[in-house]
Design a protein around this nucleic acid. Structure first.
Length: 413
RNA sequence: GGAGAGGUGGCUGAGUGGUCGAAAGUAGCGGUUUGCUAAACCGUCGUAGGUUUAAAAGCCUACCGGGGGUUCGAAUCCCCCCCUCUCCGCCA
């Protein structure tokens, strides 16, 4: 949610931003609605003031009662209009995208993202590299067939040493983030619509969530929803910021409309697992905190030994709530391509306005916090491990940092 | 699932249908006193929106879990919902 005062004082700014982001909300119409709302509000408030004044008189002047009774007829009618106008303004406002950082590249999809750097040497094999699906089948550690049998296509099992490898990586990543100042949470895996709205998933990605029948609840698409929602309606102590939170949860997404995209293997699935990084900070700190999250992501991949590149995500590839976003794309020898493994977004005050998360300094300085939402690791990183550490016979060598946790060095067919 | 209790400002906790945005205490902030700390004393101290202004003060409106109702007037009366706590049952 953007600050509506910007719309009132500088509508051109909002209009340009909406145009650049391909938002089809009619800004002029919204602005007119808002002006009308403000006018009605003034009328209503004046009438209320009049009513309050007359009511006080009633004690000594009973005749005033009749006047107020008449006045209330008009007032009730106007209040109804006011509610209606507010609803219309809010509905449109909810669809407005966040503003953009100056350095967000133009472009319409991920092909237009701007590469910032490549890190790590791509492995060279003297055999034909397999992709993670082929390796998963060969090693018997990824079972998509039974995932489909038991749940649905798009669900899968990690099996045996594959499950051990994945669990080791997730646990290790959580521990590393804790070492870097993050507080670890175990989070609810369902959230109410208010929380999804507040984090910007509603109304923008409504068809992505699994709703629970008969409940105002959906399975979480990411623990960002529950970790950011954690502080909804709160005023945080300025000195306590930045707050750095992490959690490991399953993430559920319907992926409606994305069939056929990156469908091989377990790249795009209905349930995956993620260690998340969330930061609440003061507005002036969000660019720095955004970089901190990126550094953490890079650190984790470097420790695991996975080659990757960092891209500055272009306008068209960024969700409406984002102000600036970095993706990290790992190198997948089996695919012969870089593919997205993590993303890291500075949401500025977009979520905090919707969720009413503020900070207050002892000197009285106050405002909405900024939030950063970034991946730590996901199953896709396990896939990257498999593809990068594969050997000619299809066996996969376990990255050194994970060996103390897996208890084995290699997964063999 | 059954029974009961309760939801008021950062926290604790008063509140008769009208002068209550709300007593008091505590925490916070500013100050005085003190050799330091502590204590004591004085002052200040809700949020949001609108309006005015160079800025502030000021003024207006709303908010005592949420929604609706009664009334000239509701924290206070009535109805519905939500949440929390306690006890019982069931249970990972």
């Amino acid at each position: 949610m953007i600050d509506i005062r910007i719309l009132r004082e500088n509508p051109e700014l909002v209009k340009e931003n909406a145009a650049r982001r391909g938002c089809d909300v009619n800004i002029d119409e919204l602005r007119a609605l808002d002006q009308q709302y403000l006018a009605t509000m003034k009328e209503v408030e004046n009438l209320r003031a009049e009513r309050n004044r007359l009511s006080k008189e009633c004690k000594t002047n009973p005749a005033a009662r009749e006047t107020v009774r008449e006045l209330k007829v008009t007032l009730t009618e106007l209040e109804k209009q006011l509610d209606e106008q507010k609803k219309q303004v809010d509905e449109k406002l909810a669809w407005l995208p966040n503003f953009l950082s100056e350095d967000v590249p133009d472009g319409k999809d991920d092909a237009d993202n701007l590469e910032i750097k490549q890190v790590g040497g791509k492995p060279s094999f003297d055999f034909a590299a397999r992709d993670h699906q082929a390796l998963g089948d060969l090693l018997g550690i990824i079972d998509t067939a039974r995932g489909a049998k038991v749940a649905q296509s798009g669900f899968y099992y990690w099996v045996g040493k594959g499950a051990q490898l994945a669990q080791a990586m997730f646990f290790w990543a959580q521990q590393e983030l804790v070492k870097r100042g993050f507080t670890l949470f175990m989070s609810p895996c369902a959230a109410k619509s208010e929380t999804l709205f507040g984090t910007g998933y509603l109304p923008f990605f409504e068809d992505q969530s699994y709703n629970l029948t008969g409940e105002d609840l959906a399975l979480i698409g990411t623990s960002e929803q529950t970790l950011v929602g954690y502080h909804a309606e709160e005023i945080l102590e300025g000195a306590s910021l930045p707050l750095c939170y992490t959690a490991y949860t399953p993430c559920f997404r319907t992926e409606a409309g994305s069939y056929g995209k990156e469908s091989r293997g377990i790249f795009r699935v209905h349930q995956f697992h993620k260690v998340e990084q969330i930061i609440f900070c003061k507005p002036e700190d969000s660019p720095r905190c955004h970089e901190i999250c990126l550094d953490n992501e890079e650190y984790l991949l470097q420790q695991l030994g996975i080659p990757y590149r960092v891209v500055n995500v272009c306008v068209g590839d960024m969700g409406a709530p984002g102000y600036k976003k970095y993706d990290i794309e790992a190198w997948y020898p089996g695919f012969g391509a870089y593919r997205e493994v993590t993303s890291n977004t500075n949401l500025t005050d977009f979520q905090s306005r919707r969720l009413n998360i503020r900070f207050k300094d002892t000197d009285g300085n106050r405002g909405f916090v900024h939030t950063i939402s970034a991946t730590g690791v996901t199953d896709r990183v396990v896939c990257a491990i498999m593809e990068n550490f594969q050997q000619a016979d299809g066996s996969v060598v376990v990255p050194e940092v994970l060996r103390p946790l897996t208890g084995f060095d290699v997964i063999t067919p």
